[in-house]
């Protein structure tokens, strides 16, 4: 029998491997979309990246509370009114309904948050009592620019799950309101918009950047109107639509139009907001004031 030469066998095996690889490649592409993913993280983690994204988003909240945070054993759900996540809503409520619901609404939000974060009850035993000397037991929030510390986690969360809209809006809120980084906030929102072109939340936040920081009324109005249109397209048919976003968008549009002297349009937006507002009587009062102005105007 002829003796096989090792280099020849190796070359033969390589040729077989190459042939098999090229012939099966187009079938393999259909087995999974993971291999064709545009980002390395998606290729590596697949859909599991969303779990990590959630973790990093929560980690941002943990950081915001300087490590004081309930575990899954302390509560079944994470705090829904954490100022890191909902501070944006409170803040905007404050801006939108300034002079009307300020005190009552904000106190209500803070009280709820305090209540939810008061997860450390009386220690049940000496182990629990003694153990509290070794972990964070004070409920505090980052302040004086230290809010920046939540940003890396949000950035990571966005990298892992670009479809998570809240990451962009929360990061942008802190960047523009507390850290003076308006350009970075806008850039991050635009990045979010590229990943979520029909997100009314991101469009709304972008409108805020244009209106609050650039006094760009035209673009702010455009952005908010597009946001309102997308909201109607996406949410109006749902059994439980996102009413707080609708309220935000319409209230902001109403304020903008009021400031521009377009009282009729402001009244229209306020009427929509009134339908979804927890304090419709306050908005009704504003509508009446605007109607009076409209009546008095030539």
């Amino acid at each position: 029998m002829m003796k096989a030469s090792p280099p020849l066998v190796l070359a033969l095996l390589l040729a077989v491997c190459f042939t098999v690889a090229t012939s099966t490649q187009r079938h393999a592409l259909n087995w999974s979309t993971r291999a064709q993913a545009d980002s390395v993280l998606k290729v590596l983690l697949g859909d599991g990246r969303r779990m990590f994204a959630n973790h990093f988003f929560t980690q941002a909240d943990v950081t915001f509370h300087s490590g004081y945070y309930p575990s899954i054993f302390d509560r079944r759900e994470k705090p829904s009114t954490s100022p890191m996540q909902s501070g944006h809503d409170d803040h905007d409520d404050h801006e939108a309904e300034a002079g009307h619901v300020h005190g009552e609404h904000c106190n209500h939000g803070e009280d709820a948050h305090e209540k939810e974060m008061a997860f450390l009850n009386q220690p049940r035993d000496w182990i629990e009592r003694f153990g509290r000397h070794f972990f964070v037991t004070d409920h505090t929030h980052l302040a004086k620019g230290r809010e920046r510390e939540i940003l890396p986690w949000l950035r990571l969360s966005a990298e892992l799950d670009p479809q998570r809209v809240q990451t962009y809006t929360v990061a942008a809120f802190w960047l523009r309101t507390q850290l003076g980084k308006v350009a970075e906030a806008e850039e991050f929102l635009r990045e979010g918009l590229r990943a979520n072109p029909q997100s009314y939340e991101i469009l709304f936040a972008l409108g805020q950047v244009r209106y609050d920081h650039h006094q760009d009324v035209v673009r702010a109005r455009n952005l908010w109107e597009v946001a309102l249109r997308y909201w109607k397209e996406q949410e109006s048919g749902k059994p439980e639509p996102d009413l707080s976003s609708l309220r935000e968008i319409t209230l902001h549009l109403a304020r903008l139009e009021e400031a521009e002297g377009n009282w009729r349009r402001a009244i229209e937006h306020l009427k929509v907001a009134k339908m979804v507002s927890p304090q419709p009587e306050l908005l009704q009062q504003q509508i009446e004031e605007l109607q009076q102005k409209l009546a008095e105007s030539p």
Binding site: T63, S66, G67, I127, F130, G131, F134, F135, V136
Partner: peptide, 22 residues
């Protein structure tokens, strides 16, 4: 209770010293 000895959060978030007694 090994978790007592994990005081990373206190370091990371610049919390005060634990009492030496504890």
């Amino acid at each position: 209770h090994l978790e007592w000895y994990d005081v990373r959060d206190l370091i990371v978030y610049d919390h005060a010293l634990i009492s030496w007694w504890h």
